[in-house]
């Protein structure tokens, strides 16, 4: 299934240039030039990524960013702006933007960011919403992790690591496999990166609760299980 992008840009020439750039990497694009129209479109459709200009007619980019984020907490939003002041860009971040690109920009820079966000953004099928192991619960829809009734805050990478481990409880995942699944093949994560992340995850998932769920099989890797395998 090809990825979809919504381009919200009032400058038609630039909007078409963006459509052509994204199409070149196989992304299906929908282009709108007006804030109010974009608000309506995002209300009835979901996308894998949104490119949002800050200066828009009808509804401004910041307000639109806020509205989209309130409806969809996962879709990556990349802000495009010709404003030189940092404060307006930071404001967009405060309202849920994931990244910004200043105009003028290089096509390759934009494509690199879009590719990374598309790779990262994964729309969870509706039927898989929550997974349990012992008193640990993961809600994929809201990205909430709860153990013993207590909500645990995880970073995206910690969440990914937990998600991979919990896919098959009891299965030993090697460090190489975890690095490949959680991180990226485009760069090397030293073995200690996995160790550090497992330790960080243990500090949040296991340490405050008596029973250990994350186990180490020395020389093989890590697994998540109610009892030590």
């Amino acid at each position: 299934m090809s990825k979809t992008a919504l381009i919200i840009e009032d400058e038609t020439t630039l909007a078409e240039h963006l459509r052509s750039l994204l199409s070149s990497v196989g992304v299906e694009c929908n282009v709108v030039h007006d804030g109010a129209v974009a608000d309506d479109v995002t209300m009835h459709n979901s996308y894998d990524i949104i490119l949002l200009d800050l200066q828009l007619p009808s509804v401004g980019g910041i307000e639109l960013c806020k509205r989209i984020r309130s409806r969809d907490s996962n879709v990556p939003i990349i802000v495009l702006t010709a404003f030189s002041d940092l404060d307006s860009k930071m404001l967009a971040f405060d309202y849920g933007a994931d990244d910004f690109i200043s105009k003028p920009f290089h096509g390759i820079e934009l494509l690199a960011k879009v590719t990374v966000f598309l790779k990262r953004h994964y729309r969870q099928p509706d039927e898989v919403q929550t997974v349990h192991i012992a008193d640990l619960e993961i809600d994929y829809r809201t990205k909430n992790v709860i153990r013993g009734g207590k909500r645990i805050s995880l970073t995206p990478k910690e969440f990914s690591l937990l998600s991979v481990l919990i896919e098959q409880p009891g299965k030993i995942f090697s460090k190489t496999e975890l690095a490949r699944r959680v991180w990226n093949v485009g760069f090397d994560t030293g073995t200690n990166t996995i160790e550090v992340y497992v330790s960080l995850l243990r500090n949040k998932i296991d340490k405050p609760f008596g029973v250990k769920l994350i186990h180490t099989k020395p020389g093989f890797g890590y697994c998540i299980a109610e009892k030590e395998p």
Partner: peptide, 24 residues
Amino acid sequence: DDVLFDVAEITSVSHPETHLSIDL
């Protein structure tokens, strides 16, 4: 670390010729 992984992902796409390694 989150910021670093974001940067590394983008760099690996924009500079595929570079070999990037990360230690924490």
